[in-house]
């Protein structure tokens, strides 16, 4: 009976509890944010460290993403460039092309006539004067061979190359996709690097937040003791520290996003200039919406887990001696 009476004294009615719980959380979250902003320098330093840590893998991700976009444009390149004997004229070349189109391995054949090749060469720039000196066109007819996808892997491509070289009209055959595949491998390497670096620096963020929260707990030891004295539950005392961790994570994630976006803005000019030297355009793509979402969610989670570790180690709740 006594127990029942004391339970009623605890205060709020059962039906009000969800509202109270939500209200307490909202109040705690906002109070924690205010507290963090009251000390802008230490908060800013922690946030900056988190932001830089997260910006590194994010920037690498953006780099890989942009390289992939760039490589995407090259997927249309022919797999094999077939240089015909210099003597072969356009008519003969056409006949060879038609013949090749009938091969099962080949999806498409595109003919680049000698005139067209010369025009393209001129367009590349820098060679006009050299070309002026020549009496006649030094370029052979080139057949661009696009294999069917099942014949694209290096081994099959090499078989096809050998077969093509046996044709009497063919001078030599160059495989264009090999270096593309190497490039692809490099991209995969970078991507693994993103994961590794992200994992490593994520651990760093965990430790940074954990340590910051640990110091905060030590700083507020007296306050925590008094709260325990007047009947605060362990959950109530932990809550502001967990929210602080989440806020650190969120602010750090936003900083990382800001840093990467700023870097892209700064790099866009030089990249455009470089691209224009290649008579090309290359608009850099930034962090997409989904990538940003992942970074923010990840950073909040890291902050939360970091503070949770610290809170679990240092706030065990009221413990009578």
């Amino acid at each position: 009976m006594a127990k029942q009476r004391s339970r009623r004294r605890r205060g709020p009615r059962l039906l009000d509890l969800p509202g109270i719980w939500l209200g307490q959380h909202l109040q705690s979250a906002m109070a924690t944010l205010r507290r963090l902003l009251e000390t802008p320098l230490p908060t800013g330093m922690t946030v900056a460290v988190i932001g830089i840590s997260l910006a590194l893998p994010a920037a690498l991700y953006v780099l890989a993403d942009n390289l992939r976009t760039m490589a995407g444009g090259w997927d249309q390149t022919a797999a094999i460039s077939l240089f015909l004997q210099y003597e072969t004229n356009d008519g003969d070349a056409n006949r060879v092309a038609a013949d090749l189109r009938g091969w099962p391995e080949i999806a498409q054949v595109q003919m680049i006539t000698r005139e067209k090749a010369l025009d393209e060469f001129r367009a590349l720039g820098g060679f006009e004067e050299a070309l002026e000196q020549l009496k006649n066109n030094p370029l052979p007819v080139v057949l661009a061979i696009y294999p069917r996808t099942e014949h694209s892997p290096p081994a099959q491509l090499e078989t096809l190359q050998t077969k093509l070289l046996e044709l009497p009209e063919v001078d030599f055959a160059r495989m264009d996709t090999l270096w593309l595949q190497r490039f692809q491998a490099i991209l995969d390497l970078i991507q693994t690097g993103v994961l590794l670096l992200g994992g490593l620096l994520g651990m760093g963020v965990l430790l940074i937040v954990g340590n910051t929260i640990r110091l905060e707990i030590l700083n507020r030891r007296i306050e925590i003791e008094i709260m325990e004295l007047v009947g605060a539950t362990a959950a109530f005392i932990r809550r502001p520290f967990l929210y602080a961790g989440a806020w650190y994570g969120l602010l750090g994630g936003l900083t990382a996003w800001l840093l990467v976006t700023l870097a892209i803005l700064l790099l866009q000019g030089p990249v455009s200039r470089l691209a224009s030297l290649y008579r090309s355009e290359f608009p850099l793509s930034g962090l997409g919406l989904s990538a940003m979402g992942i970074i923010l969610m990840g950073s909040v989670l890291l902050g939360l887990v970091g503070s949770w570790i610290a809170v679990n180690r240092h706030l065990r709740g009221a413990e009578p001696g």
Partner: peptide
Amino acid sequence: GRNLATLPRRQIPYHRR
């Protein structure tokens, strides 16, 4: 009416109130 010896740790805050 509460026996403090058998009071679980989680209940301590409520006792202190």
